[in-house]
C-alpha cells in the first residue's frame, strides 16, 4: 500500500483506454503527465455528471474529451504492428478510421456504467525515457477497486495517453494480440481485420440504439 499522493476524487472510467508507440515522442515530464491525467479525469467526471446534458450530448462530450486525450493514430499503428507495412495505404487509412470509432465508442459506452466512480491519483513513476506511467485507483460504488496505470507520452509537444494498464494487463498489448490473431487466421489479410472491425462497429451501434 504505497498510495502516497493527493487522493483526489473524480470520476473515471473504463477498464480500458489506449495506446501508442511514438516514434516522435520526446522525454515526458512526470509532473506534466500527472497533471494531464488529473485534468482529463476531471473533465470526464464533469461531463458525466453534467445534469444539463442528455445522453447523446453526454456521449458526444465524453467522446470529444477522449479524442483530445488519446493518441489514437499512434496507438492504432502500434496495435497493427508489423501489418502496418503490409496494409495498402487505403487499408491503413480505413483501419485508422475504424480503430478510432471502435475505441471511442467502446470507451464512451462504458462511462454509462461507471457513474458514481471515484478516481484516486496514486504514486506516479517515470517508466522510460520517452513516456511516463501515472498510476490511479478506480473506485466504483459496490464494486472492488482496481489499479489503472496510464502511459503518457509527449506527442507533437502535447501529452497524450498511449496505453492504459489495468492490474498489470495492457490494453494495447492485448489488442495487438487480438488483431494479429484475426489477420493470421484469415490468410494474413488485413482486409479480414477491417471486415471484422466493421462488424463490431455495427454491433456497437445496434447496442447503443443510436
Amino acid at each position: 500500500m504505497t498510495r502516497v499522493s493527493l487522493p483526489r476524487r473524480f470520476l473515471m472510467f473504463g477498464v480500458f483506454g489506449l495506446v501508442t508507440m511514438p516514434a516522435r515522442a520526446q522525454q515526458m515530464d512526470i509532473t506534466r503527465a500527472t497533471a494531464f491525467v488529473d485534468k482529463t479525469g476531471q473533465d470526464l467526471i464533469n461531463a458525466i455528471n453534467d445534469p444539463r446534458l442528455n445522453q447523446t450530448q453526454r456521449r458526444d462530450k465524453v467522446a470529444s474529451i477522449l479524442r483530445s486525450a488519446i493518441d489514437i493514430e499512434g496507438t492504432g499503428r502500434f496495435i497493427l504492428g508489423r501489418y502496418v507495412r503490409q496494409a495498402s495505404p487505403a487499408e491503413l487509412q480505413e483501419y485508422l478510421k475504424l480503430f478510432d470509432e471502435i475505441i471511442i465508442r467502446n470507451l464512451s459506452a462504458r462511462f454509462g456504467e461507471y457513474r458514481g466512480v471515484k478516481f484516486l491519483l496514486g504514486r506516479s513513476q517515470q517508466r522510460r525515457e520517452e513516456d511516463a506511467l501515472v498510476s490511479t485507483l478506480v473506485e466504483r460504488p459496490n464494486m472492488p477497486p482496481f489499479t489503472l496505470d496510464w502511459r503518457v507520452a509527449e506527442i507533437n509537444g502535447q501529452p497524450r495517453v498511449v496505453d492504459v494498464i489495468a492490474e498489470g494487463t495492457s490494453l494495447r498489448l492485448t489488442t495487438r494480440s487480438e488483431y494479429s490473431a484475426v489477420i493470421q487466421r484469415n490468410g494474413g489479410r488485413v482486409a479480414a481485420l477491417l471486415d471484422a472491425m466493421r462488424g463490431q462497429i455495427a454491433q456497437l451501434v445496434a447496442r447503443e440504439g443510436a
Partner: peptide, 21 residues
Amino acid sequence: KTSLDPYATLRSAYRQRRAFE
C-alpha cells in the same frame, strides 16, 4: 463483447497478468 478474438485476448491477458503477479 469487445474482442474480435476472445481466445487471443485471453491468452495475452493471462500472460501479462501472470507476469505482473
